[in-house]
Amino acid sequence: MADISLAMDTIMMGTFPAKKEAQRKQARDSSVPLAANRLDPDSDESLLIAVGTKQSTDAFNELFNRFSKRVFAHGMKITRNEQLSKDLVQEAMLTVWQKAPLYDLDRGTAQSWIFTLTRNRCFDMLRKQKRQPSCVSADDIWPGEFEDVDAHGKKEHEFIEVEISLVEKYLSQLPAAQQAVVEQVYLFDRTHEEASALLEIPLGTLKSRLRLAMGKLRQLIGNEND
């Protein structure tokens, strides 16, 4: 049962990115480093944060119970060797313990974090076992540094979110008839003809309302910038 609910957690997080984003924002805005009490204390994330911030061995034991079987299964899938797969459990869970202080909610779900770390340790272990050159390691191939560039993206995203909320505010200041026209044309991407049919107004009326509405919006945004 526990396994099914784990999987469900992941699916839910993926399905409601808005919720996750809100969680992240909360985490960022908070002056207390990552208040784990906003999360379910039994969640993988809470346990991982407890391992990272309080060196909690209880939390680590629980994570070990939840994940070691899966780490072993990944090892078997890739290496088809029981001993190597056991070694992978040691390597991967050791890395979970050592790197837990580097985990925070910005890095995504705990499951994803542990999966990528397992994948990376497995890759390195297999190369070592096959005596392949050690000039590149898994951490070079799948670097956390990809996230640096993402951070830019995130900032830009937030900036656009602010812009959108401003525009929403101005839009709500327009007369209802003009709002409806802007909505149809710019939000739902309908042609003027489609919008006039849907709103049951003549095309000419739609065009003049749209012109008035856009003029008014420009004026409002202009005032804000002055």
């Binding site: 999987a7 992941t10 993926g14 061995t57 680590f60 072993f72 056991k86 459990v89 999966f115 990528t116």
Partner: peptide, 27 residues
């Protein structure tokens, strides 16, 4: 994220291994 979901959904048998020494070593 998808690979993680696949990973979590793949059946994983208990391989019967005793891990308490390993945990003690890790921590």
């Amino acid at each position: 994220a998808k690979a993680t979901i696949d990973w979590l959904q793949t059946p994983a048998d208990d391989n019967g291994a005793e891990y308490s020494d390993m945990i003690a070593n890790i921590i």
